[in-house]
Write a protein that binds this DNA or RNA. Structure first.
Lengths: 135, 135
DNA sequence: ATGTATGCAAAACATTTGCACCTGG
DNA sequence: CCAGGTGCAAATGTTTTGCATACAT
């Protein structure tokens, strides 16, 4: 019940829409939600917010480091709560399911590659598009 | 001058817009062009094509394997000629420059990770966002 | 009180589509 | 000639913005 504190901690006023959206991200069974998903979820809970606010709030949350925005190849963004542990994503082309995974070897290789080209790795986006293995 | 043949080879009629667009992709100094870039380039050469055709043709080229569509985090797609050698991309956050790189170790790791989760790797998207190394 | 946040509607983009007309083989 | 391709304008889907009103501190 301390969403209000969490918001203030990152410099955001604890307004109702922000609190509700944060709750949704924390409690939804979907770890990866589109703005539309969040919006529908709000309406379902009887809240009266506009899409514009959903986008504004999610963008602020991203800037504050509370959520991470992913861009998969689907034309729209998906947002997930930043739980502090970095991971990448695997999207099943058959079911649309999103699987998270961590792999330090890949992370290290990326840093090394950037380094070799005279750059410092700032961020990266890795998405594997996969299909269930045939039995 | 064999763009016409290249097109027929992949089952596409050698129409003027398709030939011109293929030429642009082959000759532009930018390896990665947005639909807008291609469109402007066409206009500059005095060609009279519509954006709709640019998108239709680029999409057909992608389906035919002639070009590869990338999605970077910028909201719009960029297209590059498929030169047959797979590679990933590094985008400089300071200059916007796009650098291509190949790394078989990363490719192998990705296949292994998908495998470990019971999937087969079908495709992937890896983009490193980097900044010039301080001297 | 007062500066910030919100809701709504309209705008802004990138991309796609319907349809009458044109064109390549 | 005729199926397929193109141009234009209008539709689409997602995200952003302007502005008057409502709210947190």
């Amino acid at each position: 019940m301390s969403e209000a504190q969490d918001l203030k901690k990152v410099g955001l006023k604890a307004t109702l829409p922000r609190i509700r959206i944060l709750e949704i991200l924390e409690n939804s069974r979907l770890r990866h939600m589109s703005a539309e998903d969040v919006y529908k979820s709000l309406l379902d809970s009887g809240e009266d917010v506009g899409m514009a606010t959903v986008y504004r709030v999610l963008t602020q949350f991203e800037a504050a480091g509370l959520v991470i925005r992913q861009h998969f190849d689907s034309g729209h963004s998906v947002f997930e709560l930043n739980r502090g542990v970095h991971h990448d994503h695997m999207v099943c082309l058959k079911t649309g399911r999103v699987i998270e995974f961590e792999n330090e070897a890949i992370e290290a290789l990326q840093r090394k590659i950037a380094e070799e080209h005279g750059y410092v790795l700032e961020d990266h986006s890795l998405v594997l598009y996969v299909r269930p293995k045939e039995k």
